[in-house]
């Protein structure tokens, strides 16, 4: 191991995951997850886009400055639920060796309910103290929804605060990066999409066939199985999300266990278990695509979601 590798390993070891604790409404630290892009199966195009626009400019700011590109900015991941947006965000933090501050729906809810002393500014302040730090706002639409549709003054104030913090990041802070993820980018306040805020919009699609095969392989690892043809199952589970595939495996495991209870001996998971389980389910991403296509067709003045229409056309999504 070279000195540089050792240093990187040491830094990685010291990294923290900061998360909101639902029990006592505070921010708690735990060991940082070790995911990097190498752990993300597939999504090559997405990873390439993130590297080009987010990671490489941070690692080589001078080089990118020569092309007029600035380091940093914020990244918005969108796509159907269960397709790995959260995992990808964690991997980004791993790639740039930064602390990872994860804001989930419950934390946002607590800010709305006003029962916690933590407010948005505290969270951003915590990130500034822990830099280099990636703030990952999951379910961004809950915090940054369109102000026009909000009835409560308090709700609008939170979006305003988020805008202030994002602008503050650019003006005052280096090495604090924000990644947002949402299933419903069309609900976001348009002000969030202005330059300097969430200006990189990245579509995270459902896994491709080879990725599905790999996911199935990972989910089945260590479980008794017999004569599985995962490539075939992968080809029959078009548009299934990672979460859908996990459910397929769970159902198949249950079938095998039912046989085990009947026969009294260990029964392996078979190809038929997986096929029957896959056949009994519909890809949950279909509902998302139906909504996304409507927004892309009727409401997409800036053509932000053209990529969704192109994807739907290419993959024959009806």
């Amino acid at each position: 191991m070279s000195d540089q590798d050792e240093l990187a390993a040491q830094r990685r070891k010291n990294m923290k995951l900061i998360q909101f604790s639902k029990d006592d409404q505070t921010l708690v630290e735990s060991d940082k997850p070790k995911e990097t892009f190498a752990d993300v199966a597939g999504l090559e195009e997405v990873k390439k886009k993130i590297r080009m626009n987010f990671i490489l400019p941070l690692q080589n700011p001078q080089l990118f400055a020569a092309y007029g590109k600035e380091a940093g900015g914020s990244l918005l991941l969108f796509g159907p639920p269960g397709c790995g947006k959260t995992f990808l965000a964690r991997a980004v933090a791993g790639e740039i060796e930064a602390n990872f501050l994860h804001i989930e729906l419950q934390a946002i809810l607590s800010m709305y309910a006003g029962q916690s002393e933590h407010n948005l500014h505290d969270i951003f302040q915590k990130a500034r103290e822990s830099k280099p730090c990636v703030i990952f706002i999951d379910e961004l639409d809950a915090m940054g929804g369109s102000r026009h549709q909000m009835r409560q003054h308090h709700d609008r104030m939170l979006v305003n605060q988020l805008l202030l913090e994002l602008d503050g990041l650019q003006a005052e802070n280096e090495n604090v990066f924000v990644i947002g993820a949402t299933n419903t980018p069309w609900y976001l306040d348009s002000a969030l999409r202005r330059p300097g805020r969430f200006n990189h919009l990245v579509f995270v699609p459902p896994p491709e066939e080879t990725e599905r095969e790999r996911i199935l392989e990972l989910k089945l690892a260590g479980k008794p199985a017999d004569g599985l043809n995962l490539a075939k199952i992968a080809s029959e589970t078009r548009l299934f999300s990672g979460a859908d595939l996990e459910q397929v495996v769970k159902d198949a495991v249950e079938s095998a266990m039912e046989r085990m209870l009947a026969s009294g001996q260990l029964e392996p998971i078979t190809n038929d278990d997986l096929r029957n389980s896959a056949k009994s389910r519909k890809a949950t991403t279909l509902e998302w695509f139906a909504t996304a296509k409507n927004y892309a067709t009727f409401s997409d003045v800036n053509r932000d979601y053209q990529i969704v229409l192109d994807y739907a056309k290419m993959h024959g999504v009806k």
């Binding site: 809810l109 709305y112 309910a113 639409d141 809950a142 929804g145 909000m150 009835r151 709700d155 609900y187």
Partner: peptide, 11 residues
Amino acid sequence: RAAVQLVEWKR
């Protein structure tokens, strides 16, 4: 309040 908020967000 959390439940009402979630309704507002269409969740």
